[in-house]
Nucleic acid binder design. Structure first.
Lengths: 168, 168
DNA sequence: TCCAAACCCTTGGATGTCCTAGTATATTGC
DNA sequence: GCAATATACTAGGACATCCAAGGGTTTGGA
């Protein structure tokens, strides 16, 4: 699945769009396709780094989120909102993290509907180690120049706000 | 799963990273996380537009790829390489597209190992209609400014080349 | 010539995501 | 106070992605 192609398939697609009379949306199409592909590449790198820890990106994200919560615990619906994934995805991740002994479910003290997810000691330790690995092996050598990083944060931040991700 | 958050969770994460002594990689982490989230938003829009056509993004991509091939047919391994997905993902997509009558498998004329995927007439028609819908409803109103589109294409193009996606 | 290595596709299994529906608990309104 | 509505989580199902392994076909070197 891996050898480099002789030509950029996205640039080719953009030319195809123009050739078929869709020149007005060819550039945004190319930009969006590039985002999809870049995400795929980055996710692959991240999963590769996390694999030795027995973690996937989805589980890592939850672990990291918990590790930054003051108490090390969060309601499931809060985690779902912050991670911006469907509640059932959180249920799934918690099931597996709990099986691995990294988190535990505990009842909410006042709301009987709510379940709290709580980091165990091993969970907290693993989150720390996995974060260190990601920082060194992925974020520290992203391949984006410093100015490009700023541009991405600006452009995508504006996009996310307009898409209704957050107020501000 | 949908109300806007009061604050940008990625900006919060970036602050958390800085607070924990990872200031040197906090910005790339934020940029990468923003790419992941942006991809998720865009994929959601795309799937929403394709749903009425009975297509998913994976199936649409294959259909579109075939519709741009001169002969309307491609070997499966070629499709796998161009779409940059695992061969088994192509097998899966072709199974479903074939069930829907949009493509057919045919043997390669000279290489007995290879299977060609070929568009049917319905497949070609549906590809056209789905592309028109995506152009109008997603690419035509991406929310990215024209200069931002250029920046994204430039930054992500460089990234993909350095990641080994294509030579050039 | 002929057999081992390389290549192509598919099957089976693990994960993750979403949606729909169902159960349990809280909150609201009359 | 009690019924109607809203909220929180989970079970089951549809899809997609990857990896590992298996069976058929081609290629290439001894």
């Amino acid at each position: 699945m891996g050898n480099p192609l002789p030509r950029d398939p996205i640039a080719d697609a953009q030319r195809n769009w123009e050739r078929h009379g869709w020149g007005d949306v060819a550039a945004p199409m190319a930009a969006i396709t590039a985002i999809m592909r870049t995400q795929q590449i980055l996710l692959g790198r991240i999963e590769g780094v996390l694999k030795p820890f027995g973690l996937t990106f989805a589980r890592y994200e939850l672990l990291a989120l918990l590790s930054f919560a003051r108490s090390g615990a969060l309601p499931m619906n809060k985690a779902s909102a912050l991670l911006q994934v469907h509640p059932t995805s959180v249920t799934n991740a918690v099931d597996r993290l709990q099986d691995a002994g990294l988190v535990v479910r505990s009842p909410h003290p006042t709301d009987g509907r709510t379940t709290l997810i709580e980091l165990t000691t091993e969970g907290r330790t693993l989150a720390k180690r996995a974060t260190a690995a990601l920082n060194t092996e992925v974020f520290g050598q992203s391949g984006f120049g410093s100015q490009d990083v700023d541009q991405l944060i600006r452009i995508l931040g504006k996009f996310r706000r307009e898409a209704g991700d957050f107020a501000g």
